[in-house]
Design a binder for these strands. Structure first.
Lengths: 244, 244
DNA sequence: CGGGCTATTGAAGTTGATCAATAACGGTGG
DNA sequence: CCACCGTTATTGATCAACTTCAATAGCCCG
C-alpha cells in the first residue's frame, strides 16, 4: 500500500531523493492495538513517529488526573514533534484504533536538516500548520459553546479524513468514545452525548456503531465557531523563495 | 542594547556566522504604540517578526466576535510563524505595550534554511516549544478551574519574564487588562477580577497600577493545574546529532 | 454467559456568565 | 494644572450552561 505522504507534500512534491529518505522511515514498521500507547508522558524522547494507519490521540495529563486531548491524529500525520524540544515527552500518544506506525529516530531528523533542506522546510511548514490547528482548537475550547465545539470538530475531522481519502459519501468511521470527544473539547461525556443527540434528532448527522454520517454539512457549518483558514500549499513554497 | 537572543540560544549558542544573520534582521526596526497591530487576521503574510521590546498578544477571532488570545509574547520571541503555512494570516498580533520589533521577510527565512541549517534547527525546536506551550494553554483552558488557570498563567508568565531578565524581586510589570487575561484563559473579565482579588486577599500576590508581585510562589504553585515541562536545552541538540 | 466499558437519560447542583451600576484611573485638551 | 471623558476595575444580583451524581441499558470481548 502507498504510504500516506499527503501531509508531507502539502507544500511541495517530494523529489526522488526525498522519497528515498521518506521510504527509509518505513523500515521500522510497527503495529499497536487500540488503547495502547506509542509512548507516555514522561518517557524519554527517542524519536518522532509517522502514522500509517489508524487514529492516535495526543494528550496531556493535568494535576487531578484530568486529561486534555490536544489533537486527534490521522494517517499521514507526524507525531511527537513537540517533545523533541523537551527533556522528557509531555504528550501521551494513545492509539484510538488499531494502528500501524513507524519510528523515526532523532538522528534521522538531525541528518534530514543537514542533507535535505527542502524536506526540512516541508516539515517546518507542516509543524506551523499544526500550530494553527492547535490555536484553533484552543479558541473553540476557550470561547465557543458546546454545540459550536462539537460541530466545528466534526466538520474539521470530516475535512481531514477526506484529505486522507477516508470518507465515503459523507460517512466515515468514528472510533472515538464520547469520553474522548469530551477530553478533546473540554466537555463532560454526558454533555457530549446530549449534544450529539440533539444533532442527530435534528437530522444534521447520523450515528451508529462506530460510524458517522454528515447529512447536512452546509447547515452544520452554520453552527460552527469559526473558519478553517486556507492552507498556502505551494504558495508558501514560493514565498520562501523555493528553497532547494 | 543587546538584542534578546535568549530564545534563539536555548538549544545551542549561535556562531559568528549565525549572529551575523540574526543581526541582519535588526535592520528594519520599528516601533508601535500600545493597542496597535503588527498585523491583523486576513492580512497577507509578508514575513515573521522578532520582538525586541514590549509585550504582544497573538489572537484569533471567532464568529460572534469573541476573541481568543493564544499567547502573550515577550521580548525575544519570534512572532507570526504559524501563518507562514497559510494563504492569509490567521493570527492578529496586537501590541499590549509600546513595542519595538523587526520584520523578517519570507525570503530571509527561506535562505536561512539553505545557508544556516543550525539556525534552522534552532528555530524548528523553538517552534516545537511553542507548540508545547500552546498544548499546555489548551489543557488549562479545557480542563482546569478558573483559579487554576489564573495561577498557572501567572507563574508561567513569571518564569518567562525571568528568562528575559524582566523580574525584580518577584515583581514585574503587568500591562494586561483583565479583559485580555480573560481572553487568554477563556474567562470573563468579571471572573478574572474576582479570582485576582481572592489571590491578593489571601496574600499570594500583590497588584497595583500595572505591576504585580508574587508574594508566595511556593503556595501559589500548589494551586496550579500542572507542571511546566523541562526544556531539553542543549540535550535536544545532542539528540539530533549536533547538526552542523 | 458474565464483566467491564460505553451510551443514554433524568435530576440536582455549581461554576462561571451575564447584567448592571459605580468607582478609579489615565490620558487629553483647554 | 485641572476638568473631562473613555477605558478599566470592582462589586452585587441573577441566570444559565454545563457538571455532577446516579441509575439503567446496550454492546463487545473473552
Amino acid at each position: 500500500m502507498q504510504p500516506p505522504y499527503h501531509r508531507l507534500e502539502e507544500f511541495v512534491p517530494l523529489t526522488q531523493h526525498e522519497l528515498t529518505i521518506a521510504r527509509g522511515w518505513l523500515s521500522d514498521r510497527r503495529q499497536l492495538a487500540r488503547g495502547h500507547c506509542i509512548r507516555r508522558e514522561g518517557d524519554p524522547v527517542h524519536g518522532v513517529f509517522f502514522l500509517l494507519e489508524g487514529w492516535v490521540g495526543s494528550s496531556l495529563i493535568l494535576r487531578g488526573g484530568k486529561r486534555q486531548i490536544a489533537k486527534i491524529h490521522l494517517p499521514g500525520d507526524m507525531l511527537g514533534f513537540p517533545s523533541l524540544s523537551l527533556s522528557k515527552a509531555v504528550e501521551t500518544l494513545e492509539a484510538v484504533t488499531d494502528i500501524t506506525f513507524c519510528t523515526i529516530p532523532n538522528l534521522m531528523i538531525g541528518r534530514m536538516f543537514e542533507n535535505a533542506p527542502r524536506l526540512s522546510v516541508a516539515m517546518f511548514l507542516s509543524s506551523q500548520l499544526e500550530r494553527v490547528a492547535l490555536m484553533q482548537n484552543l479558541s473553540w475550547v476557550g470561547a465557543a459553546s458546546a454545540m459550536e465545539r462539537v460541530t466545528t470538530f466534526l466538520l474539521d475531522l470530516h475535512d481531514r479524513l477526506q484529505a486522507a481519502h477516508l470518507v465515503k459519501d459523507a460517512g466515515f468511521d468514528f472510533p472515538l468514545t464520547q469520553v474522548q470527544v469530551g477530553e478533546l473539547l473540554g466537555l463532560t461525556p454526558v454533555h457530549v452525548n446530549r449534544t450529539f443527540r440533539r444533532l442527530d434528532e435534528t437530522g444534521y448527522i447520523e450515528r451508529e456503531r462506530g460510524h458517522m454520517i454528515i447529512k447536512d454539512a452546509a447547515s452544520l457549518r452554520r453552527l460552527t465557531a469559526g473558519f478553517v483558514p486556507d492552507k498556502a500549499g505551494h504558495a508558501a513554497w514560493d514565498r520562501l523563495g523555493q528553497p532547494s
